[in-house]
Structure formats: structure tokens, C-alpha cells
């Protein structure tokens, strides 16, 4: 910003006798001599209009300078800039990590022990993505005889089975009325009970 810089310097130079707007003085000097030679009413009028125009021009320059100064000074007034300001990131959001497709993702709460060996415990929150196609080995939320269940999906040798991850529970053969509701992509398990953990 050239205006602000120059003007800022002049304003601070309080001790010197340099005129603040030297252009005005020089221009006025030449003008007076020329008028002595020519004279006449028409030129008098002409000079008036030129002066008005010049005044407006000067005003505009000054206004422009004033605005420029404000812009120049304000960041300094705000204090020393943080050295990190060009390197900031937003805080991490777990949604980005756990939910790749928000429109198709549902949270459900697991209860029971049949998936213990797959790392799913009672009261865990499961992230279920309905847009993922179930494949062999996926943990799925399924509907069997009108009831929700969580099991490992198995489709070996052309037969579909729902397997528990706990020896105490027998596999469910998919010949029964069975529907895959969604694929469990993550399970959220509380390690230490904290105050926000709801039942």
C-alpha cells in the first residue's frame, strides 16, 4: 500500500518544515504567473472551475489516503501475530473417521455376549453402514424372524450362515427368514467408565 506508507512517514516527521502537500504550492505558483500574462474574465471563470476540480481531486486523494492508513494500521493494533496462524487445522472430528456415508449410517446399541470374541461387548455402540454390501467375514446387523441380531456373515460354499463369535452360541443357517439390515463398520467400547457413559 504505497499511499499509506508515504503518508504515514510524513505525519510522523513532525520536526521538519517540509510542506505537507508540496504539489499544491508549486502548481499555484505557475498558475499565478500565467494569469498575469493573459488576464480576462473568461480565464477568471476557467480558473475558478479548474480550482474547484482540483479541490475535488485533492479531496479524493486525501480520502483515499485516510482509508489506506486505517487498513495499514489495524493489524498492528491487534498485537503480534501468532506464528502458527498459517498452520492451523480444525479440531479432529471422530465422525470423519467413523462415518464415511452419513446418509446410510446408523448407530445402534449392542446387548448380549454372542459376539464377545469379535470384540463386541454388552452396551457397545455399533456403527452400521447400510451402503456397504455384506461380504464373507463382515459383522452384520441382521433381522431373523422379525428380531434384530448381530452376527458374522459367512457365505462359503454357496451357503449363507450367520455365525456367533462365542462358542456357546450355535450358527444360524440363513434358510430361515433372514435379512441383512446393515454392515457393522466400527464398534465403540468404553474402557473406563466416564461420567457421560449412558446405560
Amino acid at each position: 500500500m504505497p499511499y499509506g506508507g508515504r503518508h504515514g512517514g510524513a505525519a510522523l516527521d513532525r520536526g521538519t518544515s517540509t510542506p505537507r502537500y508540496p504539489d499544491t504550492a508549486i502548481f499555484g505558483h505557475f498558475w499565478l504567473r500565467w494569469r498575469e500574462m493573459a488576464g480576462g474574465l473568461a480565464l477568471e471563470l476557467f480558473s475558478l472551475s479548474v480550482r474547484v476540480l482540483f479541490g475535488l481531486f485533492l479531496e479524493a486523494v486525501l480520502v483515499a489516503r485516510r482509508v489506506a492508513i486505517q487498513l495499514f494500521l489495524s493489524p498492528v493494533a491487534a498485537g503480534y501475530p501468532s506464528p502458527a496462524q498459517d498452520y492451523t487445522d480444525g479440531a479432529l472430528d471422530l465422525n470423519e473417521h467413523l462415518v464415511s456415508n452419513p446418509a446410510a449410517t446408523f448407530f445402534v446399541r449392542a446387548s448380549g455376549e454372542s459376539m464377545r470374541d469379535a470384540g463386541i461387548f454388552d452396551k457397545d455402540i455399533l456403527v452400521v453402514d447400510r451402503s456397504v454390501s455384506p461380504r464373507h467375514g463382515h459383522v452384520v446387523v441382521a433381522v431373523v424372524d422379525g428380531e434384530f441380531t448381530v452376527k458374522r456373515y459367512s457365505s462359503r460354499n454357496g451357503t449363507m450362515q450367520l455365525l456367533a463369535a462365542n462358542k456357546a452360541y450355535p450358527p444360524i443357517s440363513a434358510a430361515d427368514e433372514c435379512l441383512i439390515w446393515g454392515v457393522v463398520t466400527y464398534s465403540i467400547h468404553a474402557q473406563s467408565l466416564c461420567h457421560r457413559q449412558s446405560p
Binding site: V108, R109, A110, E113, V141, F148, T149, V150, K151, S198
Partner: peptide
């Protein structure tokens, strides 16, 4: 309100 409240989530039996 299965999809908007943590304390009203769908319960699934594992």
C-alpha cells in the same frame, strides 16, 4: 427417536 438421541438408540441382541 432412534436416530437423533443417544439414549434412545435401537437395541440389537448380539
Amino acid at each position: 427417536r432412534f436416530t437423533t438421541r443417544w439414549d434412545e438408540l435401537l437395541h440389537v441382541q448380539t
